[in-house]
Design a protein around this nucleic acid. Structure first.
Lengths: 140, 140
DNA sequence: TTCCATAGGGATAATTTTATCCCATACAGT
DNA sequence: ACTGTATGGGATAAAATTATCCCTATGGAA
């Protein structure tokens, strides 16, 4: 594993949370898992912009941090399913809030962020999938 | 400014939010500013673990993103005060939630994170300052 | 037999983020 | 004359995060 060289700042709740949620795809993956997209291959397909490698690495980290649990079915080809732990679920309000905030302020944000060179759309579709599933999650 | 080479993923609210909040000290600084710690020098003193450079850079980014506003008083020695914009304020529920989540799960988290080499305490005091001020913010 | 899907992980490059160090302004105090 | 305070930013090094590429295993389909 990677050997951190700079001490972590754990003095403040914010930093602890950051340690857990820090990762380009972590919040999005947690959200996906919360919506029953739990197999690695499904998750991978959900984020065309991500590398398989990063996703598996970040899933491992989330598991190591006790946010998700991995269930491996002794089959071939292999089948794996991740699910949120209790603590993992307790993060969802925050993640949902972040998602809503970003969506609510999209036009403003796209505008102020646009000075950053290239803004790419990685998968408009993902949003839609999320939107649909969010409804299901509330119903189900 | 820095030239990003990898396109941003702005398809999902989560990524937009991440773009704004991503920075080791950004959430903490926003929280500080929300509690009336608004001068750069004060903020710097609040985070002994941070470099002056990073803080000013991240403050600039936050300003560029429209999350905070900078007011420069034409004095000498210079006096500067940052304050949250309306959008900046709208982030506080999220930041507070992150902070609470981290604190609420502190023992668990410190435990699962401890496999990461050295965990340093940067400033126990900061938490206390925050705690006291949080009360004031609710009252005031 | 060759190709696809599933899942995992090593090695290494590229990119992004932080850390270090140094320089500048201008006033106040010792 | 120094030293300290306040604020800002350039240049460059170090560290952390992501991206690329490649290899493993096995069963089923074309």
């Amino acid at each position: 594993m990677y050997e951190r060289k700079t001490p972590l700042a754990v003095d403040c709740g914010l930093h602890l949370t950051r340690e857990v949620l820090n990762g380009k795809w972590k919040p999005a993956m947690l959200r996906a898992i919360s919506m029953n997209i739990k197999r690695p291959s499904e998750i991978l397909r959900l984020f065309p912009g991500a590398t398989r490698r990063v996703l598996t690495v970040q899933l491992n980290e989330l598991e190591g941090h006790g946010i998700i649990i991995k269930k491996t079915y002794p089959q071939l080809p292999p089948k794996v399913e991740y699910s949120l732990t209790e603590i993992g679920w307790s993060l969802m309000p925050i993640i949902d809030a972040m998602n809503q905030w970003g969506d609510a302020n999209r036009s403003f944000l796209e505008n102020v962020i646009k000075d950053a060179p290239k803004i790419g759309e990685i998968s408009k579709s993902t949003c839609q999938i999320y939107a649909n599933m969010a409804v299901e999650r509330k119903i189900g």
